[in-house]
């Protein structure tokens, strides 16, 4: 599988990654090589094989419905890039 420049840009957009236009060909080459490696999966006979998401196939544990957390806004917002009146600020969102 080989990715062209346009596809690299599409993926980078989907992943919200700014890529230097000059670096796109190199990404295209490297990603294509990785996909070539990955394409070996096609050789495996997986007919009737169930996907395995977790090696131990355990089941989800449930927690009791109890409030255990207290307000730590000040602590958490001390590491935030931009806050005001307890809110995280981002460039204006248009709906």
């Amino acid at each position: 599988m080989s990715l062209d420049k346009h596809e690299v840009e599409r993926i980078a957009h989907l992943a919200r990654l700014a890529i230097d236009p000059g670096a796109v060909p190199e990404y295209a080459r490297n990603l294509s090589n990785i996909l070539d490696l990955v394409d070996q999966l096609g050789s495996a006979d997986t007919a009737g094989v169930e996907p395995l998401a977790h090696p131990l196939e355990a089941r989800q544990r449930l927690r009791e419905d109890v409030v255990t957390e207290t307000d730590q806004r000040e602590r958490f917002q001390a590491i935030a890039p931009q806050v005001e009146d307890g809110l995280y600020l981002v460039p204006r969102v248009i709906e």
Binding site: V66, Q72, F76
Partner: peptide, 22 residues
């Protein structure tokens, strides 16, 4: 009382981000 995946309160009307845990 608490959120679907955390122990933070779901009570309505709290000051912004005071019920948003880690």
């Amino acid at each position: 009382k608490s959120k679907i995946f955390s122990g933070a309160s779901t009570a309505y009307g709290a000051a912004p981000n005071t019920q948003a845990c880690a």
